[in-house]
Design a protein around this nucleic acid. Structure first.
Lengths: 137, 137
DNA sequence: TCTTATATTGTAATTGTTACAACTTGGAGC
DNA sequence: GCTCCAAGTTGTAACAATTACAATATAAGA
């Protein structure tokens, strides 16, 4: 049963396995559209109509903290977006349609930070512009 | 008189030259600390005690729109930050002290987006970790 | 099954931002 | 300089994202 993947992810981090966490993980895994918390909430509400928005915040917080999912913000909006793919850090944001594309690339942090002395944990690259589809219109 | 620089910047974009805009520009130029709008507001309030926060939002909006300044958001906070340096796109954010460092580097957008077909206008690179100073403590 | 640490819930408060309508001002043209 | 209008400023109110917190419920180990 595929849910096992998510159960494993949670157990490996000593997080309790709850229906909410499993369903949010499954949603993020199947829908890699970098949803905002509001979007996660409105999906999850269909499955668990009585779920509290606070639960969504709590679940997302613990998933981020345990590096099970990624989070990012974009200049044009206030809200936090999340992403199941923990290794994708480059995003292209279309200013016309708002769609967020994953871009397959990576930074050479060593080279970038060279003798600066800072110790990096993570990074986000956001590229803004007009996407392929919108250019064609 | 140094204010001429800022007057030129505004005139080049057909923006009216107001005391508020000049002072905000001067502040951002002299304090390249990537302040949040709240920080800009609390500084500017000392010079113009009767200034409205809305004016700060408006001034910042038009400066961003006219590419006189840069804007960015970081995962750990909701607020928009701004930066006089229009060409600096890499930032290192320290999770201990919160300091935001400019990192001198650039992306090769052509190479990154290659055959993707998107047209890029701008980008932001945020690197998260612990800074030099905090590592020494 | 009992227990307890961890999750969930709901409410209220806080913070960042936007909408909007009234008023003011910069600067172009006389 | 004076007049005028588009652009800038103001304040208030509404909205949206997030946090704080205390009460309740539940997962999972003993």
């Amino acid at each position: 049963m595929e849910l096992n993947i998510y159960i494993e992810l949670l157990k490996n981090k000593n997080l309790k396995v709850t229906q909410h966490r499993l369903e949010i993980l499954r949603f993020l895994d199947k829908n890699r559209t970098h949803p905002s918390l509001e979007q996660v909430y409105s999906y999850i509400k269909e499955k668990f109509p009585s779920i509290s928005k606070m639960t969504v915040y709590n679940v997302i917080d613990s998933l981020i903290e345990n590096k099970i999912i990624n989070s990012m913000r974009f200049v044009n909006s206030t809200e936090l977006h999340v992403d199941f793919e923990i290794d994708t850090h480059f995003h292209f944001v279309c200013s016309k349609c708002g769609h967020i594309y994953d871009i397959d690339s990576e930074l050479d942090l060593e080279k970038i930070l060279k003798n600066g002395g800072h110790k990096a944990d993570d990074y986000n690259v956001n590229i803004y512009g007009v996407c392929k589809k919108c250019l064609k219109k």
